[in-house]
Design a protein around this nucleic acid. Structure first.
Lengths: 199, 199
DNA sequence: GTTACTGTACCGTCTGGACGGGTTACTACA
DNA sequence: TGTAGTAACCCGTCCAGACGGTACAGTAAC
């Protein structure tokens, strides 16, 4: 086997990072290559065009989203806890890629919208199974999106998460709120959403 | 008085529209001028540089945000109703400008983050006054952001809002949910958030 | 005469993409 | 063991076009 294509992963990661921190404008092939520590020619070897680069990022998103839903459903503290807690983070691969795709123009890349919708369907279904009520499930998913947006505003995308604890406390309160509602509205189907909310 | 500077408004509106529909990349001076029906020279007459154009958009955002908070606080159905309902829309000036600024790279334009934060503070305060509970207020504002993100994904930015009714129904359910919680948690301070939620 | 533009022409820089190398890892055959 | 071949991986450079911005001459309303 020839040398493992290490550049491909690095390029995708760099693309997402630049999209999030500096925006679509700054995400040029050269800038991405430089961030990845790869030459421009090396980048173009793996992704023959910018469209191919975007497609690669979208593929990565659907993979990570599928993995995230599986992780959600088997999370010890329940899907809701896992979902909201990770939504508030900004230091994992998945968060970075998700927000990166959010920054892409949805009109120019219709597949970006499709990928985001697919991720949402997975979340929605998992949360619904946990809380029972469709309206509450929708509210939870919306709050998750709000947390993503908040995290993307607040920044901290490469710093070593100094403000994590503060954000986590806020999420704890939200989880407690969801627990109260879900307890009052109807019995949860299977998700143990009251496990580790640290009241 | 010489002819009113009508081009200035059109340029700002065009800038926001292109940012939302086609992204930061496509928002070149020439493209903005063309979308506004103005010559490039005419655009540069009002905004001497791209930075000035961005500043103009940010100024417009803070103005519209301030007006929106006032409108919220005097809305017949209460601040929460007004907030969530307008968050789900995508056909008003304010929504377009808000999402447009969201699309700007926050690292490159720090004032964009400041403007967005200012808007959030206004919303948060108004919602808090209405629902009483800080955690619930935070949840509502997060849901509003989620609705903005959803609207920016779903599109409908220049179509004449065919799917408005469907979206509105979903918001009705969310408002009913918020009413139930706010009733159970504590008495609202002054906002009549149970007025027109169409239960 | 000032304000509010239109229109064209131009400059320096950056961008996506093409292209021609070059290195590494593995296989084929003797 | 040697050695030739192949293919995946990656580098560095080049170019036409687009970009932000400048300049300037002209037009029309007030």
């Amino acid at each position: 086997m020839p040398p493992a294509p290490v550049a491909r992963e690095k390029v995708l990661e760099a693309f997402a990072t630049i999209l999030v921190t500096q925006g679509e404008r700054a995400a040029t092939l050269e800038a991405v290559a430089a961030q990845a520590g790869v030459s421009k020619g090396g980048l173009l070897y793996h992704f023959a065009s910018k469209q191919a680069l975007v497609d690669g990022l979208l593929g990565r998103l659907v993979d990570l989203a599928a993995a995230d839903v599986i992780e959600m459903r088997s999370a010890p503290a329940g899907p809701v806890d896992h979902f909201l807690r990770t939504s508030a983070q900004s230091d994992t691969d998945f968060d970075r890629v998700y927000v990166a795709v959010t920054r892409l123009p949805q009109d120019t890349y219709p597949q970006a919208r499709a990928a985001l919708d697919e991720a949402h369907r997975g979340w929605q279904a998992a949360v619904l199974d946990a809380v029972g009520d469709p309206v509450l499930a929708r509210a939870v998913v919306l709050m998750g999106d709000g947390l993503y947006l908040e995290a993307s505003r607040t920044g901290d995308w490469d710093a070593d998460s100094r403000s994590r604890r503060r954000t986590d406390a806020h999420v704890d309160e939200l989880l407690a709120l969801v627990d109260r509602i879900s307890g009052a509205t109807g019995a949860p189907a299977d998700g143990r959403s009251e496990g580790a909310t640290a009241g």
